[in-house]
């Protein structure tokens, strides 16, 4: 009995790719698989939406790259903040004019304007761990392309070249030889966005010259373990005609079931269907294919009960350091993994 042909498109041995897992990686569920594998050395260090760096602990860190939207949001917050401070300073200096200190006040205001234009981003990023206030609000951080911390000079490079990234400028006022102070041009960040799109690590021109990347810092939450009712029975051995699915596939099943609670019933089945069909096809499942197609979540739970529950229970027998039980467990497992 053939199972739906699209199941073949889910490559076994890869995790996350091809199978629309909710929130699987920053690529999001809507994008096709990026061909990502577990081999940390398969990419040249630059992969779509992620950057790989090797740390001194000899582990490959994957840093998620910040998108244009978040970066715009961060910039917008920073700009609102700068404008608010400048506006407060502007109104604050009005009484000083009446006190005859108008020159000093406007000189100080222009210095503040200069700092806000050319210094704010640099000093925030150089002395606040690669973040500005807006970047911190959007969970962004600037790091070097080797994953190291941002220091003063690179921060200065990327933020002085911000002027080039900000081109073209939209003049709200006709450009004049004495550039207008109170009606500044609006930066459209056209060059920056173009460069972001073309660069594999999402770098704008300033980032390229400074050797920096803007990454996202997601909050770390421990993944849940699936809760499977005891009454869910393993699949009958007689119905299984293929080899045991690879660990990565089982891990995907495990994770899917752990996150099942966040999906409603219908969507849960929708998302489970390609995975369930791929697993069923691999196992050459001899049971009712309509059962798999109509209740793919239930099928996945049974897969879990077949392959992953014994592992969990096996662990409990090993834990008390009871030699005999442990040996029993090993023989049991050997039996199970014997090719059928």
């Amino acid at each position: 009995m053939p199972i739906a042909p699209d199941a073949a498109s889910a490559p076994a041995g890869t995790t996350g790719s091809g199978i629309a897992l909710p929130g699987a990686g920053p690529a999001g569920p809507g994008l096709p698989g990026t061909g990502e594998t577990n081999d940390p050395f398969d990419a040249d260090g630059a992969e779509l939406f992620r950057m790989r760096v090797e740390t001194p602990e000899n582990i490959v860190l994957e840093l998620p790259i910040a998108g244009v939207t978040r970066r715009f949001g961060a910039w917008f917050i920073d700009t609102l903040l700068r404008v608010a401070v400048l506006a407060a300073a502007f109104f604050g200096m009005i009484p000083l004019f009446f006190a005859g200190l108008g020159g000093t006040a406007s000189g100080a205001f222009l210095l503040l304007l200069f700092f806000s234009e050319w210094g704010y981003f640099t000093f925030c990023e150089a002395f606040y761990g690669g973040r500005t206030i807006g970047k911190a609000a959007f969970g962004l951080r600037v790091v070097r392309t080797d994953g190291g911390p941002l220091t003063f000079w690179p921060a200065l490079v990327r933020n002085l070249l911000r002027f080039a990234d900000a081109l073209p400028l939209l003049f709200t006022d006709p450009p004049h030889i004495m550039s207008s102070t109170l009606m500044p041009a609006v930066p459209l960040y056209g060059l920056g966005a173009l460069c972001w799109t073309l660069s594999p690590r999402g770098q704008r021109i300033g980032d390229l010259f400074a050797g920096t990347v803007v990454i996202r810092t997601a909050p770390a939450t421990v993944p849940k373990q699936p809760v499977i009712l005891d009454k869910i029975a393993p699949i009958d051995r007689a119905l299984i005609n293929g080899p045991k699915p690879p660990r990565s596939t089982l891990a995907t099943v495990d994770e899917y079931l752990a996150r099942r609670g966040v999906l409603d019933h219908e969507r849960g089945h929708q998302l489970a269907l390609p995975l369930a069909l791929a697993v069923a096809r691999r196992l050459k499942y001899g049971g009712d294919p309509d059962g798999v197609r109509v209740y793919p979540m239930a099928f996945l739970a049974r897969i879990w009960a077949t392959y992953l529950r014994p592992e969990d229970e096996g662990e409990e027998t090993v834990a008390p350091r009871n030699g005999r039980m442990a040996r029993n467990d090993r023989t049991k497992r050997a039996e199970r993994s014997r090719p059928r």
């Binding site: 996350g16 740390t55 860190l61 994953g147 911390p149 810092t217 770390a220 995907t252 495990d254």
Partner: peptide, 28 residues
């Protein structure tokens, strides 16, 4: 072991945070 993307992602995130904290920029 291939214990899944979520666990991998969690540890990766935590390690990334640790990395930035530990290999911080020297004060200027």
């Amino acid at each position: 072991h291939g214990w899944g993307e979520r666990l991998d992602g969690y540890l990766n995130t935590l390690l990334g945070k640790g990395h930035t904290a530990f290999y911080a920029a020297p004060p200027s």
